[in-house]
């Protein structure tokens, strides 16, 4: 396109600056995670892997990782169990109040998490669901199901409904059509929805702060409480681990199915 050398150089410089701006916090954290001091500082002065050892030696972090992993896994599963049929109904059926149902499924995205967290606390406290796995999972479902509905709907909207009719004329009953034609067509959306749901749940902080407690403290809440009293490179090391987890998941999805395509709707 722009073949002028000066234009090309300008473009390269601008892109580099943009990416530096976007990645600066992550770079700082990454560098800092190898520092040998006992508090966060920049630039670092030594090099050690102690911070990474500390993360996995810390009991709060370890239980936090466990709580978050269990919560995220169950949340993902339930988000698929509710989100996929919802997406199927929203894209393949015409019924009264379809738009209302669709809005209801997507509305948690529009409400600030702090409002959701407070509302869930008020709702859960008397049941009591606060400080339980089910409370966390239920709360996380609210913010993850919309993504699953969205990604699966997008995949289904891109698939030809005539293919399902063709399968029926070829002798497939409704359930066979669902299993052999509809779900395979929705698979890219299903997988990316699952990964997004898992990452969102694993990362969820604000709502978790309201509904979690001493016995079920997810990792982000544990980190938050840790940094209230201390700030050492182990926080940076933990952050690097989380970033790598997210990047790995996104790369896998992008490579295999195309995340951008399934997010578009």
């Amino acid at each position: 396109m722009n073949t002028h050398p000066a234009g090309r150089i300008l473009r390269a410089v601008l892109l580099t600056l943009l990416y530096l701006f976007l990645l600066a916090p992550i770079i700082v954290v990454f560098v800092e995670s190898f520092d040998d001091s006992t508090y966060l500082r920049f630039p670092p002065e030594g090099f050690t892997l102690d911070a990474y050892r500390q993360v996995f030696a810390n009991a709060d972090f370890r239980s936090g990782i466990q709580v978050s992993a269990v919560t995220a896994a169950v949340t993902t599963l339930l988000a698929l169990v509710t989100g996929v049929p919802a997406a199927l109904a929203l894209t393949r059926l015409r019924f009264r109040g379809r738009d209302a149902v669709e809005s209801a499924f997507l509305s948690p995205l529009l409400v600030p998490h702090i409002v959701l967290g407070l509302a869930l606390l008020v709702l859960f406290a008397p049941i009591p669901l606060t400080d339980t796995y089910w409370g966390l999972i239920l709360a996380h479902l609210g913010v993850t199901v919309p993504y699953v509905v969205r990604t699966v709907s997008a995949a289904l909207a891109g698939a030809d409904p005539r293919a399902e009719e063709a399968a029926r004329t070829l002798g497939a009953g409704r359930f066979t059509v669902l299993r052999r034609v509809t779900l395979p067509a929705a698979l890219p959306g299903l997988v990316s929805g699952a990964i997004i749901a898992f990452l969102l749940s694993f990362d969820e902080t604000v709502i978790s702060l309201f509904v979690s407690g001493q016995s079920t403290r997810p990792l982000p809440v544990a980190v938050l409480q840790y940094v209230e009293y201390r700030s050492d490179p182990s926080i940076a090391a933990l952050s690097v681990c989380l970033v790598l987890l997210s990047v790995a998941a996104v790369v896998v999805v992008e490579r295999s199915l195309g995340l951008r395509r399934s997010l578009r709707s």
Binding site: R162, A163, A167, P184
Partner: peptide, 11 residues
């Protein structure tokens, strides 16, 4: 049946 959009199974 043959459809205008072919309606093949893409997977």
């Amino acid at each position: 049946m043959v459809f205008q959009s072919y309606a093949l199974f893409p997977h």
